[in-house]
Write a protein that binds this DNA or RNA. Structure first.
Lengths: 249, 249
DNA sequence: AAGTGTTATTTGCATATGCAAATAAGCGCC
DNA sequence: GGCGCTTATTTGCATATGCAAATAACACTT
């Protein structure tokens, strides 16, 4: 789709040529300089511009394709791939999808939203300055009408565009962010906690009921983007994964 | 180390040659026919035996090496790799290691062991016949003296050798199994539950205290090997993982 | 025995060449 | 316009060749 400036691909002279090419292109992709959909120059052009043989360029591109960064098709050429939505077993990025895959009807409601400065705890947790603007959200997701998961989210306004104008009436924040922000790093933690009073009321469970707590923080180039705490009633929830000794299946 | 019979490598004629070679060797490795340490024939030999060019053989081997199935070194040749112990964030296979990485002293005790037939529930859970022999184990792992995790394990006697003679006095069952059994598939699930009466007593927590429950089942070529339930007191536990949009970091 | 240098084996990398397969784009024809 | 044919572009695959780098094995010296 988009054009690419050929001279953006620069080798650094370190290590094998094919790997230099691979890294150079990978960096352009992960840095966002070549966003998804960007068309990568054909092997021919790269070959000339880089002074390498086609097979060498080919090798780099084939490897990037195997890693999922680019998609190659004969005659159409090579384009930057849109990152796969989901990854490992815990990489549940879209709650609507998660619910629908269980064969249940999905719904959600935004219970509260405040746009302000971060509280000291939030700033601490997330490495923010007190002067940064953040949005605070409390969202309840429902499956077949019943409370499914309680989402508490902080969004760093500087990391995304159009946050102020979005009211999350049609798209829950998690899904909206996938489309309106970039991320390069994420971290999540899983633990078990008892439901607090307020939480129990919202989730329609007993106080102290064991819940699975998933906390995820996301950055883009070391800039905080969002942090979220997902509280799942434990008794009706499990995260399942399958794998083999040589990798996920 | 071990010799390899060259004629074990057989192509199936489906798809690109380099991929046939890759799959052929991969199958030999994952099936256990070429156990870790086995030396893979040099490119030269494979090239002759398969009637392919060296570069084609090379391509297959390089890819297998990248996937971690084999290890290649100049002059020494290529050997089958020993599978990496740990994989994704949840793939905590060795509890001793897990504890030591937290900088705490590790200890464990086998609280109970019974060798018998599976109960109906166990047979169900694990797809066993009532006539199969299984060992039942209850193990408490401690970190710095304090209860760390409660392990309840079932081992299918047919899947491992030397089970009857092992008393798990020096090595906890999880680690022992890593050395005495093969596995090709695993599945695990995470959920949150409240501690039962017995469990709470053993873990030295209150009844109903939220705990993280990790259940893992392991097979070898669709033969059950072991199933384990790990109960972690939730408040002092979190599983953490880091990753990027294009894979784990 | 211990170090020292040499050689042979094996993998790693890059290139050039040729053909095959997929398919987007263009063309001509109704 | 829509349909079918041809063509040009781009990637996919396999081969042959040559050299470089690492290093195990061996021979040699002290």
């Amino acid at each position: 789709m988009t054009e690419t400036r050929l001279d953006a691909v620069k080798l650094d002279g370190a290590g094998p040529v094919y790997d230099q090419i691979r890294r150079a292109i990978r960096d352009l992709v992960v840095s966002g300089e070549w966003p998804p959909g960007t068309s990568v120059p054909p092997e021919h052009a790269l070959m000339e511009q880089l002074g390498a043989s086609r097979m060498t360029v080919h090798r780099a591109l084939v490897q990037l394709a195997r890693e999922g960064l680019i998609i190659r098709r004969r005659r159409s050429g090579t384009v930057v791939a849109t990152p796969p939505a989901s990854h490992a077993m815990l990489d549940i990025l879209s709650i609507p999808e998660e619910v629908r895959q269980l064969g249940q009807a999905y719904a959600y409601e935004v219970l509260a939203r405040t746009d302000s400065r971060p509280s000291p705890e939030v700033a601490e947790l997330f490495g923010l300055k007190r002067s940064d603007k953040v949005a605070h959200l409390l969202v309840l997701h429902r499956a077949d009408g019943k409370p499914h998961v309680l989402e508490e989210r902080i969004i760093h306004a500087a990391g995304v565009t159009g946050l102020a104008d979005e009211d999350f009436a049609v798209t829950p924040p998690g899904d909206w962010l996938l489309q309106h922000s970039l991320w390069s790093q994420a971290e999540h933690a899983i633990s078990a906690v008892g439901a607090g009073e307020e939480q129990a009321a919202l989730l329609d469970i007993a106080v102290g009921e064991p819940c699975l707590l998933v906390e995820r923080r996301t950055w883009n180039q070391s800039q905080p983007v969002t942090a979220v705490r997902l509280l799942y009633p434990g008794f009706r929830h499990r995260f399942v994964g399958r794998f083999g000794p040589y990798g996920a299946a």
